[in-house]
């Protein structure tokens, strides 16, 4: 009973704070709401038998990526800018309508689909994850390492004042 209540509470918090992220004017409030969103999703990930991904979500997303966002917001002194009057209101209305329609259609599809029967999760997801990451998926693992290195070097080079 308690896990189910926890899941729906976290789902509600996630939806609420994701709306705060996209609607609020102040970028700092949006970033902090994203932190709350990420932590509530981490709790949901825990309940889906993915403890490692939940912990990584907190360490990487909430602990590093959004801190990076916050640094950029604060160092560039970005205030809550007055959003200028919309000169293309059609785009805004179309977006709202289309994504609401998207949500309804996909929810309908999900309801009508017969999913494959549920299979039990492996008893120790952490250990199996580690083993498969270093055997079957070793190449993508190393490739992601190279990607992160490229991102670091790229970010460093892009922001040098004398080169831009």
């Amino acid at each position: 009973m308690l896990p189910v209540i926890l899941f729906y509470t976290m789902a509600f918090i996630a939806l609420l704070f994701s709306m705060v992220v996209i609607l609020h004017k102040n970028p700092v409030t949006s970033a902090m709401s994203l932190v709350v969103l990420v932590c509530s999703l981490a709790v949901i990930f825990f309940q889906l038998d993915a403890p490692f991904i939940a912990a990584i979500q907190i360490v990487v997303y909430a602990g590093a990526i959004i801190v990076l966002f916050l640094f950029v917001i604060m160092l560039l002194n970005l205030r809550a800018e007055v959003e200028e009057p919309e000169d293309r209101p059609l785009q805004k209305y179309l977006s709202y309508i289309s994504f609401f329609a998207f949500l309804v259609v996909i929810s309908g599809v999900v309801r009508l689909t017969t999913f494959l029967p549920e299979r039990p999760m492996v008893p120790d997801p952490l250990r199996d994850l580690a083993y498969s990451l270093f055997s079957t998926y070793l190449f993508p693992f190393e490739a992601v390492t190279v990607l992160l290195m490229a991102a670091v070097v790229g970010a460093f080079i892009l922001t040098r004042k004398e080169w831009s």
């Binding site: 403890p51 990584i56 360490v59 801190v67």
Partner: peptide, 25 residues
Amino acid sequence: DVSVGMLLILGLSGLSVYGLVLAGW
């Protein structure tokens, strides 16, 4: 006694960075 205890401790010390940077700002 979760199976990822140490990782969560590291994550929580990452979360405490927010207090510092928000206090300063």
